[in-house]
């Protein structure tokens, strides 16, 4: 039986890594009396999958976890929340139709809310327009394996990018980015590329406050 859990990861819980979160989820479920099915094989692991990894340091309002159990899912939202660390908050629990595709394979886009210091001068909206009007939008992507940075065209991966407003020294942006397997665009890559385009002063990655607001699934 498959169950889809919707949850938030907010506040300091943003400091939990993907693996830390997986472990916390497994324990939370077990402690709330839910026993995930284990895979067969030499090194059995529980059938538990997060729809889309969230970078360390990002908050999220909308995360999905799919879990397979042998018996019907019995825990209440309250029981789960009691068994999870602060900031990881389950908002909903729902059954998944038996033969449907896994939630991870249904992910198409993700929406982000970004607060960033040192916004470019002038009208941010206009600069976004001309940024998006480029034929190719080049971003530098770190290639850890080969220890170099590659230039890639991220234009096809940007579905939406707007500036919300300016708050003193900071600005807020919202974007909708491709997130399906093989074409996941990290919002920081977009921000760095945009700041570069505008000639705005460089900002360290850790100064962007990023919140994932939505994961958009295929119908």
């Amino acid at each position: 039986m498959r169950t889809l859990i919707t949850f938030m990861k907010t506040g300091r819980a943003a400091c939990m890594s993907h693996l830390d979160l997986q472990r916390a989820m497994l324990r939370g479920l077990r402690s709330a009396g839910v026993r995930p099915v284990y895979s067969a094989g030499f090194n059995p692991h529980p059938k538990l999958s997060l729809a889309l990894p969230l970078s360390l340091g990002f908050e999220s309002l909308c995360e999905y976890l799919e879990v397979t159990t042998a018996s019907p899912f019995s825990a209440s939202i309250e029981e789960l929340n009691r068994a999870l660390p602060d900031g990881v908050v389950v908002a909903g629990v729902g059954m998944v139709a038996e033969r449907s595709a896994s939630v991870a394979s249904l992910v198409r886009y993700a929406e982000y809310d970004i607060v960033a210091p040192n916004p470019p001068c002038g009208s941010i909206a206009e600069q976004i327009d001309s940024y998006l009007a480029q034929e190719r939008i080049v971003a530098e992507k770190e290639n850890r394996k080969k220890a170099r940075t590659d230039e890639i065209d991220i234009k096809p991966m940007i579905k939406g990018f707007v500036s919300e407003r300016r708050v003193g020294e900071r600005a807020r942006y919202a974007c909708t980015l491709s997130a399906h397997a093989g074409a996941v665009l990290n919002p920081l890559l977009l921000m760095r590329s945009f700041y570069g385009f505008c000639g705005a002063p460089a900002v360290n990655d850790d100064e962007f406050i990023v919140t994932r607001t939505k994961i958009i699934l295929a119908k």
């Binding site: 300091r12 819980a13 400091c15 939990m16 890594s17 830390d20 916390a24 324990r27 939370g28 402690s31 360390l56 340091g57 009691r82 068994a83 999870l84 660390p85 602060d86 900031g87 360290n204 850790d206 100064e207």
Partner: peptide, 19 residues
């Protein structure tokens, strides 16, 4: 501490809030 957490390795070491 929040402003430091984004700048260190394994910031989860410093957050507390465990079950």
């Amino acid at each position: 501490v929040d402003r430091l957490l984004r700048r260190v390795v394994k910031p989860g070491r410093y957050i507390g809030g465990e079950v």
